[in-house]
């Protein structure tokens, strides 16, 4: 019996060449369709970063007056954080969807489909990128309406997108890896908590120069600090290589590790 998802994979297998990408595209398309079919699962992930950008900027407006703060617009400081976090949670959302597929048995049918295993990772990753871009665009539109300014010109959008999609990639790898290992909703809380902590134990709320105490020590060595620096720089001033390379390196290393974690989880799932 064929369902929409397995039909896409079967069709992809028949096509000569490019099977991995075609299958991945099919899985991604199914995941994106679920935005329309199950909006309650996606819209909180879209609305929360918008709310975060607005609420943090308003509540913590005064911190821009602390000597040494790099901008006088709080929205410029908090918008990239909210957008990057939202993109990251798009990746985690893919992990949630995978848990649902595992619990309902649909994932077993995907595994039985004559499609390469790597497409089971690439498909969700493509979907996470598209969901992440939707979140980034939405937060940016609202942020600009609330007075955000790209001080570093259009390059600032490029670095924000790189940072956001980088965190989405890590979130997807981490979410899928946990989903394949736990195979139930216990993994959901772990996915959220770890990403949340990883992002907040950084310069998320205040620059390193303004911080004090234990958080300063943790944020200084947390690679996500570099990713946020990359994503934020265009809203604080010119885009420079100095503020970019650390974030790019962190994205590459952490994404590879997260995707390897997912791949090993998928293999373990196949062995059981």
């Amino acid at each position: 019996m064929s369902t929409p998802g397995t039909h896409v994979l079967a069709h992809a297998e028949q096509a000569p060449g490019g099977t991995v990408v075609r299958s991945a595209r099919g899985i991604a398309r199914r995941s994106l369709r679920s935005i329309v079919r199950l909006p309650s699962a996606f819209f909180p992930a879209l609305l929360m970063p918008i709310f975060q950008a607005i609420a943090f900027s308003g509540t913590f407006f005064a911190i821009t007056k602390i000597p040494g703060f790099p901008t006088d617009r709080s929205i410029n400081w908090f918008l990239p954080l909210a957008a990057s976090m939202g993109a990251g949670f798009s990746g985690i959302g893919i992990g949630f969807a995978t848990i649902r597929d595992l619990e309902s048995g649909f994932f077993d049918r995907l595994r039985m489909a004559p499609a390469p295993r790597t497409s089971l990772l690439l498909g969700p990753l493509f979907a996470a990128w598209i969901r992440g871009l939707l979140v980034l665009a939405s937060v940016l539109i609202v942020g600009f309406a609330f007075g955000a300014r790209l001080e570093g010109g259009p390059m600032g959008l490029v670095t924000l997108t790189a940072g956001g999609l980088g965190i989405a990639t890590m979130g997807t790898g981490w979410g899928l890896g946990l989903a394949y290992r736990f195979r139930d909703m216990r993994a959901a809380a772990l996915m959220q908590l770890t990403l949340f902590n990883a992002l907040f134990l950084t310069n998320a709320q205040a620059p390193l120069s303004v911080m004090s105490g234990w958080l300063h020590a943790v944020a200084r060595v947390n690679p996500f600090t570099n990713v946020l620096r990359l994503a934020r720089q265009g809203f604080l001033g010119d885009v420079t290589w100095q503020d970019s390379w650390g974030g790019l390196l962190a994205i590459v290393v952490l994404s590879v590790l997260a995707l390897l974690f997912a791949l090993s989880g998928l293999r373990r799932l196949a062995d059981d």
Binding site: A62, I66, V210, S212, W214
Partner: peptide, 20 residues
């Protein structure tokens, strides 16, 4: 508690701002 710890480290210098 996590937020209180984060806030204390992040916004510790804000306590000298006017209005605080």
């Amino acid at each position: 508690l996590f937020f209180a710890a984060l806030g204390t480290s992040s916004f510790g210098k804000a306590t000298v701002l006017p209005g605080f």
